[in-house]
Amino acid sequence: MVRVHPDSPISATLVAWGNAWLAGHAGLDEAVDRLEHAAGPQVVSSEVTEVPLRRFLADLRAEGVSALRLSLPAAGDPLGLTGPPPFTMAAVDAGQAVTIVLPGRCLGLVPAPDRRGSSYSGVRWSAMPADCTPPDVPGLAEAEHALTTAMRAATDALSRAEGPGPGHPALRATDDGLAPGYPARAHRVAALTARLASVLRLADERGLTSGQIAVRGQALRDLDRAVRRARVAAHNAIHETRDAQARP
């Protein structure tokens, strides 16, 4: 499978704007327009059919869809996934996926680039059955604490492993990727994960000894794990808010 680059996962955009639409903070057209602006035209395919994303989501609403959940798995870390194996393997290969919660069943979506000829570039979502067992993912407060701890540890490790060449990239302002209806804390955590993802993308090993590479590599792996967990928590936080409001 050709991967959609996970630094700015289209799955996160679908989850954020899909949940905003379900919660009444955005219309269907606005949500799909945001997705198409981010990655071009989008279709959903299964073994028997292929439909535009807009129609697919409208059909889900009629079926009673209640939530979209983000998964950002990596090899050995199936974050946000509970199976079955075909969905898990496809999601790990892509580095991202969406689980759609419906009455009595769940559906998994895995994105891949969709290129047809020289002028068409979009996203094809492969739909497949997904397990409805709630995944073991951190809550927003837990994820924010872990991200802060990992960031401090990575900063210390990278400063000790610094080699020749430019220093660490600055944490520039970045779109947090969330949509209306998310709590302020989720926006704060998502913005930080976006900035740290840029640091991870730009990090390199030029001019380092083998020992420095080992230190830097472990620090970046730990930070990547914390970033993925915090991003999942931020994008799923709208469910935490809704569930808390529903409690007596």
Rank of each mutant, 00 (worst) to 15 (best):
L202T: 08
A26F: 11
T193I: 00
G207A: 00
H168S: 11
G18A: 09
S119L: 12
P85A: 15
P52N: 06
G181M: 06
P169T: 00
V43D: 14
D204M: 07
R124M: 11
L220C: 04
S8E: 14
G104F: 12
G40E: 09
R229A: 04
R124Q: 11
T99E: 13
E63M: 07
L102F: 10
R61S: 15
A62N: 10
A190G: 09
L109Y: 06
P111F: 04
A246D: 08
T209Y: 09
V44H: 00
P248K: 08
P86H: 11
A244Q: 12
V92R: 06
A194K: 05
L22V: 11
P103Y: 12
A143W: 08
L178T: 05
G108W: 15
A38S: 08
G167I: 01
V51G: 10
H168R: 12
G177F: 00
L223F: 09
E162W: 13
L53Q: 05
L72V: 03
T174S: 13
P180R: 02
W17A: 02
S126R: 14
T148R: 03
P6I: 01
G24L: 06
R61H: 15
R160Q: 11
V137R: 08
Y182D: 01
Q42R: 00
S126I: 11
Q245P: 01
R61A: 14
P78H: 04
I238F: 14
T155R: 13
I10L: 03
D204K: 09
R3T: 12
H25G: 03
D224S: 05
A230G: 15
V4I: 07
R172Q: 07
G108R: 13
T88G: 05
D93T: 11
Y182E: 06
I10Q: 04
P166G: 04
H25E: 07
A58H: 13
L70P: 14
A203W: 09
A75M: 10
